[in-house]
Amino acid sequence: MTMSEEEFKKLKRRFGDDVSTWPAPYRRLAENRLDEDPVDSLVREAAIDNVDDSLLVRKVLDELDANRNSKWLWYAFTSPRLAAAAVLILTGAVMMGGYQFARVEGRSVEASLFAVAAGAPTTFLFGDEFDRTVSNL
């Protein structure tokens, strides 16, 4: 199995003059080893397509850019450290919210109790039903 002179020159420009530094399929094609099993050389020739390599490079780099954006987002959700940090922030936010709510609610209860202690009617605090029940006792 051989490669054309034109193809050989093209590969030489790409990978340099030293054929031994070329990647496997090209190196094998260029060397055309005589000690090789003829089935292997036939398989290589049948397997390799004449396609534009630069297109594959472009596709891989495009895929890299696309993946980098989406996979970093995925990483943000799947990273144990980031997940732990998110749980901590969420817990903190819930605690702060609960505290704020309890403080506001607590103030209104305290104010009502003070009002009753100062002589305000208990309806102020518990409603008419409570007063009726107490007066029936």
Partner: peptide, 12 residues
């Protein structure tokens, strides 16, 4: 690296 091995990997 893609330029060096892309073709071989695609064939494989």
């Amino acid at each position: 690296l893609v330029e060096r091995h892309g073709k071989g990997l695609t064939a494989f």
